[in-house]
Design a protein around this nucleic acid. Structure first.
Length: 385
DNA sequence: GAAACCCTAAGGCAATTTCT
DNA sequence: AGAAATTGCCTTAGGGTTTC
């Protein structure tokens, strides 16, 4: 109505625009189902920016225009996690998964449902919301203390700056998930780097980690990072991991759609091999899958062992392998006097990184005279030495 | 080029739990 | 009870990225 448009109060229009923009950001970045064209979206965004410029008093920190900016945090402050960000026990083959299943059923009985999710190759992130607003984002760090990367995470459009109140959730709650670099965006970035005569980035995971630790949030904002969330604490009314994923989705977070509820370890094996075949069809990298006992009651019964829960395991894909030649073997003396043999190799690219050195604690084969006999060392991927 | 992080993996060894 | 397996903790180390 033209009449309404003339008389519209800027304060009202600002709210309308924010609501519309949030809806379309959600459709585009979270659901991957845009409802309007980029141009239409841009028009809304420009209008909001204009109204806010005219009326700076109407600007609020959770406005879509305020994703980039705020105070330029000089350093990353340390933040202690409300509860430790644990790591997962790893399994590399069927026997280890069956052992896990056996342990689980030994503890909680045979009626077990598993929630299986793809294990995204990115970096873990923790988001704290207070009174419906994103208050803080932190990296995992050592699991207990991470770094405050709020200014950078705010620039990721699939991360809601505001959350509607929800029954069963307190004022302050935490969401955890993974930040990653979509492969298409990674390749685009590298084309841009090349065009600018700069060095390419080596792989999406490290680039994502680097992007999140930028001093200047404008750089992060230009990187097209994405997210998948998978944990909610406290868990509100939810009773299972499956429920949590649904709840997170309803709250507006991006949740991976390839999750499955599985009722036997055989189904887990099938899911695993299915994605082993199709992992390269995905628009992001995965390094396996995460299998969790779905029911929270059973999770509680199983409990934790120091650094990882007993009710979950990471079922990894067989590491990429490569062969190369050992050029020389050197021995290094550690701080405590420990001797470490290191093989210097002909550089070989495996798993997206170049490997030149490997320590030989594991793969090294020594004959009865203490002489190294392997002419070749089988390496897993970088770091897996 | 160095330092500080990120993520990952393995070895050594002691303590604890489980099995026979 | 004694042996075997598992767990927990710490150390060392690899490649990568960014900032200074």
């Amino acid at each position: 109505m033209s009449k309404r448009k003339k008389t519209v109060d800027p304060a009202v229009r600002v709210d309308e625009l924010r609501e519309l923009i949030r809806r379309h950001e959600h459709a585009y970045y979270v659901l991957d189902e845009p409802e309007i064209s980029d141009a239409e979206y841009d028009a809304l965004f420009i209008e909001l920016r204009q109204v806010e410029e005219a009326r700076p008093d109407l600007i609020s920190p959770d406005s879509p225009t305020q994703r980039v900016g705020g105070e330029a945090s000089d350093q990353f402050a340390k933040v202690r996690h409300r509860s430790p960000m644990l790591s997962l026990q790893n399994a590399f083959d069927e026997s280890e998964i069956r052992a896990f299943d056996k342990r689980v059923r030994g503890a909680v009985g045979d009626k077990v449902t598993y929630c299986a999710e793809l294990k995204i190759d990115g970096l873990a992130i923790s988001l704290t919301y207070a009174k419906g607003r994103l208050q803080r984002a932190a990296t995992r760090g050592d699991g207990t203390v991470g770094e405050d990367v709020t200014a950078n995470i705010r620039t990721i459009r699939s991360v809601p700056l505001t959350i509607e109140p929800r029954a069963g959730l307190p004022d302050v709650f935490e969401v955890r998930g993974e930040v990653y670099f979509p492969i298409v965006a990674f390749e685009k970035l590298n084309r841009e780097m090349e065009a600018a005569g700069k060095a390419r980035f080596v792989n999406p995971r490290n680039t994502a980690a680097g992007s999140v630790r930028q001093i200047d949030p404008n750089v992060t904002a230009s990187r097209d990072l994405q997210t998948f969330m998978y944990m909610l604490d406290p868990a509100g009314h939810t009773r299972s991991q499956w429920d949590v994923l649904s709840a997170l989705e309803q709250m507006g977070f991006r949740v991976n759609k390839h999750r499955r509820r599985l009722h036997s370890i055989e189904e887990v094996m099938e899911y695993h091999s299915e994605w082993q075949r199709h992992r390269h069809d995905l628009e992001y990298e995965i390094d396996g899958m995460v299998v969790k006992v779905d029911d929270f009651g059973q999770q509680l019964e199983l409990g934790f062992v120091a650094r990882s829960p007993r009710w979950a395991i990471a079922f990894k894909y067989a590491p990429e392998q490569a062969e190369t030649e050992v050029e020389e073997i050197a021995c290094y003396v550690g701080r405590t006097g420990v001797l470490t043999p290191v093989a210097h190799l002909k550089p070989v690219i495996v798993g997206g990184v170049t490997v030149r050195n490997v320590t030989m604690h594991n793969e090294a084969q020594v004959n009865e005279k203490g002489v190294y006999v392997g002419a070749r060392v089988v390496i897993h991927r970088a770091g897996d030495v």
